[in-house]
Nucleic acid binder design. Structure first.
Length: 387
DNA sequence: CTAGGGTTAG
């Protein structure tokens, strides 16, 4: 098997990137203009994609503190840089994270493996596949040896961008090179196998995980429960739930959602609904995915009106909610209703799948609603401009 | 709390 990793040692490590004096850690003395320029970046220069959260996510404030550190000529340790880069990534400021990374490099900061891992993960999660690849390549040229975290991160990136075979190759590569597997790596792979409906392989993988004596945490249990659910083995699911209880672990929103989806898929909508109301003491945000599962399943079982009622009762909706309904309304040839929903989702600034847009427009046209089709198209165009 | 894993639409 040929190697799939772009960081494989290929001859010598590139010399071109190592200028004189660049091996020392930054900052040596006083930060120069470039660093100041970055640090004096004002709020207007930051992208307006702050992810709201109940946690204390305040990247602007972090940036101010960081400015203070640099401008007052306090030498921050490397962990501070990594923390900053990580914080920027986690809050949607990937571009700024990359800029900071470059600026620091320019000042002789030689990134650690952890810095690369942070950036690759951040870039990947924000949809910057090419940039992620670039950093990965640089990691390969840096002489650092990637660790299990790097591998898991890159695998996850591959799966995220539907490069399943590439991801699985990395998994095999990890084995060949003798990396120790932990629950992170196994769960990443099992999750991808389940998603691609390779249930047999997913079972093999989970047997390996259990056989290797890895202690299962809640995420591992959730992964396994999801596997059994997708395979329709609900009795095994309940066994696992008992086991979770015996271990003294507590189910979280993932567990409940996976279970609700499983019940739905098994055709037990009533029980799914019961379980959803059992989640009543959780906030709506935690129940959203479960609601979406139920809506989709209701539609697929032919209860579209019931699904619409549920939809109207929801205090929070996302693009999944809309996509499910729009697609299923199209399948039922209720194109005008689908169109109405699509427009309201555009007004709510939802991202709508191209496939859903097409389905509605084509459906309207095919059933003679040419004007409605045109109107919808112009709405979509406007939404794109206004976004 | 310096890095990686688990849920839904097509």
């Amino acid at each position: 098997m040929s190697s799939v990793l772009p960081w494989e040692p290929e001859g010598e490590i590139a010399e071109s990137k190592k200028g004189p004096g660049l091996s020392r850690d930054w900052p040596a003395a006083r930060p120069n203009r470039t660093i100041r320029a970055f640090c004096s970046i004002d709020d207007g220069a930051l992208p307006a994609v702050v992810i709201p959260d109940k946690e204390v996510r305040k990247p602007d404030e972090a940036n101010r503190v960081f400015q203070d550190i640099v401008l007052n000529n306090i030498s921050p340790c490397r962990a501070t840089f990594n923390t900053m880069i990580n914080g920027l990534c986690k809050n949607g400021y990937t571009d700024n994270a990359l800029m900071l990374f470059r600026n620091l490099q320019r000042h002789g900061f030689s990134p650690e493996l952890i810095t690369y891992n942070i950036l690759i993960n951040g870039l990947c999660k924000s949809g910057r596949w090419r940039a992620a690849r670039m950093i990965l390549k640089e990691l390969g040229e840096s002489g650092h040896v990637p660790n299990a975290i790097t591998y898991t991160t890159v695998m996850k990136c591959c799966f995220r961008y539907r490069k399943f075979e590439e991801g699985l190759d990395i998994f095999l590569d990890m084995k060949t090179k003798g990396y120790t597997f932990d629950a992170f790596a196994y769960c990443t792979v099992i999750g991808a196998l389940v998603k691609t409906e390779r249930i047999e392989e997913a079972y093999q993988c989970s047997q390996q995980m259990v056989g290797n004596g890895i202690e299962l945490d809640l995420v591992s249990y959730n992964t396994l429960i999801n596997l059994y659910c997708k395979d329709g083995k609900l009795e095994d699911v309940f066994k696992l739930l008992d086991e979770i209880e015996r271990e003294g672990l507590e189910c979280d929103k993932y567990t409940h959602t996976i279970l609700i989806d499983g019940l739905c898929r098994a055709g037990n909508i009533e029980r799914a609904q019961q379980h959803l109301s059992y989640m009543n003491d959780m906030d709506f945000d935690s129940k959203l995915v479960a609601f979406n599962c139920l809506i989709d399943r209701l539609c697929k079982c032919g209860y579209i009106d019931h699904a619409m009622k549920l939809f109207e009762s929801m205090e929070l909706k996302d693009s999944f909610t809309y996509a499910s309904l729009v697609h299923n309304l199209c399948k039922a040839r209720r194109f005008r209703q689908a169109s109405k929903l699509l427009i309201s989702s555009l007004n709510g600034r939802m991202k709508i799948l191209k496939s859903a847009q097409k389905a509605v427009i084509n459906g309207l046209r095919a059933s003679g609603f040419t004007r409605d089709a045109k109107k919808l198209q112009s709405e979509i165009r406007w939404a794109k401009i206004l976004r």
